[in-house]
């Protein structure tokens, strides 16, 4: 399964590198969202300091919707989903590969966004290990849930609008947990970020397990 997952992930990442969608569209979009939030809240500096973590993760969720839509479109545009079934690739490997590719893209965007909140919002990182662990865990959960829901709406005509409606509520626990853990990592609010990280681990494990189990059914039916 890991060989097939690597194959699918490498293919998706290669397509993204060629299309340059992440670099030329997604990163500028994420940067703009961060700047707009900055404009909206800069007049009230304490509010911006308190909201930095939440703004960061809301931006990540917007980016995740775009990344998942793109990942889904790769397989639906010219019948590649059907060809994956014919090739005999394990659906769980397709799921793992596509989720991994989405996660890599999100992590790259998050790296830029962390630079953005340091420069634009004057944030400081007090617990780098917690920050990195939160990014990795939350991103894995987002990618897993997104890839699964992307497959669910793949056969829907208006999937571009349906996906965010389904995905954002599902990702609400990530927004909550990752924001709290980031609050601790950035020293913005006195909370136990590690306990929120544990909640994120649970969310991620559940979504990965559910994705590995259910993706095959969705691949067949949509």
């Amino acid at each position: 399964m890991l060989t097939d997952a690597r194959l699918v992930a490498a293919k998706d990442l290669r397509i993204e590198m060629r299309s340059k969608v992440t670099v030329s569209q997604v990163v500028p979009f994420a940067g703009l969202v961060l700047v707009m939030f900055g404009f909206a809240l800069d007049a009230n500096r304490p509010t911006l300091d308190l909201a930095t973590s939440g703004l960061f993760w809301v931006t990540v969720l917007f980016v995740a919707v775009m990344a998942v839509q793109r990942s889904t479109a790769i397989e639906t545009t010219d019948g590649a989903r059907r060809a994956l079934l014919l090739a005999g690739v394990e659906p769980s490997a397709v799921f793992m590969g596509k989720a991994a590719a989405v996660a890599v893209q999100l992590l790259a965007v998050e790296l830029v966004l962390i630079g953005g909140i340091i420069v634009l919002y004057d944030a400081s990182i007090e617990e780098p290990l917690l920050l990195v662990a939160t990014c990795v865990t939350a991103t894995a959960g987002i990618a897993a849930a997104g890839t699964l829901l992307g497959a669910l709406v793949a056969g829907v005509r208006a999937r571009e609008t349906v996906l965010p409606i389904l995905l954002l509520p599902v990702l609400a626990p990530v927004l909550l947990g990752a924001t709290r853990a980031f609050d601790d990592a950035l020293g913005a609010v006195a909370v136990n970020g590690w306990s929120w990280l544990a909640m994120l681990v649970g969310f991620t494990v559940i979504n990965v397990a559910f994705g590995v189990t259910a993706y095959g059914v969705l691949l067949e039916e949509t």
């Binding site: 194959l7 290669r14 545009t77 010219d78 019948g79 590649a80 994956l84 090739a87 005999g88």
Partner: peptide
Amino acid sequence: GHDTALYDELSVVENLEFWAAASR
């Protein structure tokens, strides 16, 4: 089928090598 199941951004050889690897 009517669809060609080819990825637009990949080259001809990259496409077929992907499908060959996927099909063992």
